[in-house]
Design a protein around this nucleic acid. Structure first.
Length: 352
DNA sequence: GAGGCGTGGCA
DNA sequence: TTGCCAAGCCT
């Protein structure tokens, strides 16, 4: 197919049928675009809608974000998942302020040198904000292009993903304007989200239907080819819930810097039930244990069974840092989603 | 290169 | 219920 035909078809389709009212559209402020792109990594639009405006109000510009404590950033990210994004976001803001004079770099190559910005996010920012003629290649585009081209390569192998990206880049005309790049980049995402969906694609509404090789073969469902499958295993964690007898406050402590929920606040995690049945070290006047109903929580690669084991203590002097939480208002912290839900329920229903 | 890293929606 | 996976990046 003539390269520019696909490009122009997507641009035209986006202007007429694409999304135009998302909160991060209509601005070419790289800070706003960058924030949206990071939040949208592996995260659906409907989820991000509940976070984006609140985050922007708290951190209206890159300087505000850079100078904030990381814990404040994690608190606003709480529930969004993939918390390394929040840590990278914070570091990236500081890098932009300290090394780039407060201005985001203006080309994809330099953007990609920043923490948390990979090749696809760099391309998205560069295309939206500066009209750079680079192609994104996220999950949407992989699906759209592998179908368009009947691309058989297994995308689990990075060499194939690289080839597809070169094909994607080849679809962008050398003389594309800034306005076209914006519409095209958004159009690829909109096509993937609204038309060229994973299951039951709406080919009748697709601007590229007549040139789609997978459609011609009625093999839309065969693309993209991606063999990688990760195995999920179940783990049982005992949560050591330390509660102050005087006021019912809960003790929360920061998670290790690596691993699941890194840097968030949580109960201490023990991997043995026997340990959970012992009074917490540093506690005096401990009463318990009280075994709560287990919380089932699934991650991409792990099924967790969280078993809260509560101890009421008269006094507590633990080894590491932490904080007491005794009301819903004090849940203004970076918390794993299942623990936030559990605490919300208990703090909301508890007597004052 | 392969695996770790959250959450929620949907088939 | 279970599995899949979305505007990916990092190690």
């Amino acid at each position: 197919m003539i390269v520019s035909r696909f490009f122009e078809a997507v641009v035209r389709w986006q202007r007429q049928h694409g999304r135009h009212d998302l909160p991060w559209q209509g601005s070419t402020d790289p800070y706003r675009v960058w924030l949206s792109e990071i939040m949208l990594q592996q995260t659906q639009v409907s989820t991000v809608l509940g976070y984006y405006d609140r985050f922007l109000r708290r951190f209206p510009d890159v300087q505000a974000l850079a100078s904030a404590p990381l814990q404040d950033v994690l608190a606003l990210w709480s529930g969004l998942g993939y918390y390394s994004r929040a840590r990278h976001l914070h570091r990236c803001a500081q890098t932009v302020v300290q090394r780039w004079g407060g201005q985001f770099p203006q080309c994809a190559k330099d953007l990609q040198s920043l923490p948390g910005i990979g090749s696809s996010t760099a391309a998205a920012i560069a295309a939206f904000c500066y009209g750079e003629r680079v192609s994104i290649l996220d999950g949407n585009v992989q699906r759209v292009l592998t179908r368009l081209l009947a691309f058989e390569g297994d995308l689990a192998q990075s060499a194939n993903a690289k080839v597809l990206w070169q094909q994607a880049q080849a679809l962008v005309p050398a003389d594309a304007t800034h306005l076209q790049m914006r519409a095209y980049t958004q159009g690829l995402m909109d096509l993937g989200a609204l038309v060229c969906k994973r299951s039951r694609p709406a080919c009748g509404r697709c601007p590229a239907q007549s040139s789609c090789m997978a459609h011609a073969r009625q093999q839309e469902g065969d693309f993209p080819v991606k063999t990688r499958q990760l195995r999920r295993r179940t783990e049982r964690w005992w949560l050591q819930v330390v509660r102050r007898a005087a006021d019912g406050a809960y003790w929360l402590q920061p998670r290790p810097a690596q691993g699941i929920w890194a840097g968030l606040h949580a109960f201490a995690v023990l991997d043995e039930g026997e340990a959970a049945a012992q009074p917490p070290a540093g506690a005096s006047g401990a009463e318990g244990p009280l075994w709560h109903d287990p919380i089932r929580h699934s991650l991409t690669h792990r099924d967790l069974v969280l078993q809260p084991v509560e101890w009421r203590v008269a006094a507590y002097a633990p080894e590491g840092p932490g904080c007491w939480v005794r009301s819903v208002a004090e849940l203004d912290l970076g918390l794993p989603a299942p623990l936030r839900a559990w605490l919300m329920q208990r703090l909301a229903s508890a007597a004052p």
